[in-house]
């Protein structure tokens, strides 16, 4: 069976891996990791510019070719819908695009999504013409509500941001995937390549990760590992795995055995 590309906001993507641009040692490392990961979409945060820096200091956007990569701005650091809408509007002005990763958090300690404020922000941003890829909990009914509102991708966490604990609740994730008719992309909590593979084997349409690459001892090798992990998981999902069995079954046919 031939796989379809991932389709988001009128654009198709061969790679189902989306990477974040935070926590790298420098912009060169970000660029190298992006290139080797095969990702075609990279997230950025929207923050105050550093007034004290030299006029010629490089900006992250100088390192990402907008013709080659889709830049996905996020609303990181927002704790209510008002802040998230404000940041979304600034992102639209900066990047001249209506695509946004909506992320409204509960508190600084857990970094878990604030479900009520996420819903409120999503409603308003859809009205303002944004295409929203929404970071959410693994709450099945919330995911469904966010899709009904008009979000173009549902992005449930695997586990809390930056923890690298992998997929804590695969059952909820499977239910969200089953119910959703828009892409489901696991966002946050992926720790290593096998986590990304499992997410894809469960049927996720993509994986978004940042720390798993940037905080690995060797981010460039991990970026390459993630590329293969996502491809392997997707292919396994498409291939449909064998049924498990409680009893051993020999791989060799008994017929014509010498004993």
């Amino acid at each position: 069976m031939i796989d379809k590309d991932l389709f988001l906001n009128n654009k198709s993507y061969i790679s189902r891996l989306i990477i974040g641009s935070g926590k790298y040692k420098n912009f060169d490392e970000t660029k190298k990791a992006l290139e080797i990961s095969g990702a075609e979409m990279i997230t950025v945060a929207i923050k105050r510019t550093n007034i004290g820096q030299s006029y010629n200091d490089k900006n992250l956007l100088d390192y990402i070719d907008p013709l080659k990569y889709k830049i996905l701005p996020n609303t990181a650091g927002c704790f209510n819908s008002e802040e998230a809408i404000r940041v979304s509007l600034l992102a639209k002005e900066l990047l001249n695009d209506n695509l946004i990763k909506l992320e409204v958090l509960q508190d600084k300690e857990t970094l878990l999504p604030n479900e009520d404020e996420t819903l409120m922000a999503a409603r308003e941003l859809v009205n303002l013409g944004f295409s929203i890829m929404v970071y959410t909990t693994d709450n099945v009914s919330l995911a469904s509500d966010l899709e009904k509102i008009g979000c173009i991708a549902i992005m449930p966490l695997a586990s809390p941001i930056g923890t690298g604990q992998g997929i804590i609740n695969p059952n909820n994730l499977k239910k969200i995937i089953h119910n959703s008719s828009v892409p489901v992309i696991v966002d946050a909590g992926i720790g290593t390549a096998s986590d990304a593979t499992i997410a894809m084997e469960l049927g996720c349409d993509g994986v978004l990760l940042n720390s798993a690459i940037a905080m690995a001892e060797d981010p460039i090798n991990m970026a390459e590992a993630m590329k293969h992990a996502v491809i392997a998981g997707r292919k396994a999902f498409i291939a449909k795995r064998m049924k498990t069995s409680k009893i051993a079954r020999a791989s060799t046919n008994k017929k014509n055995s010498i004993s």
Binding site: G20, S21, G22, K23, Y24, T30, T43, V44, A45, I46, K47, R48, T49, I51, N59, L60, L61, I71, P73, N74, A76, R86, L89, L90, E93, L94, L95, I161, A188, L208, L209, N210, S211
Partner: peptide, 29 residues
């Protein structure tokens, strides 16, 4: 709190107590 588009930067005058935010893209996940 109002976005000023790039083509208006030249004509947009500043007044006492104005609050200006200049933003850019930085690393984030």
């Amino acid at each position: 709190r109002k976005i000023i588009t790039k083509n208006s930067w030249r004509k947009e005058k500043l007044n006492e107590n104005d609050i200006i935010e200049v933003i850019t893209a930085v690393g984030g996940g």
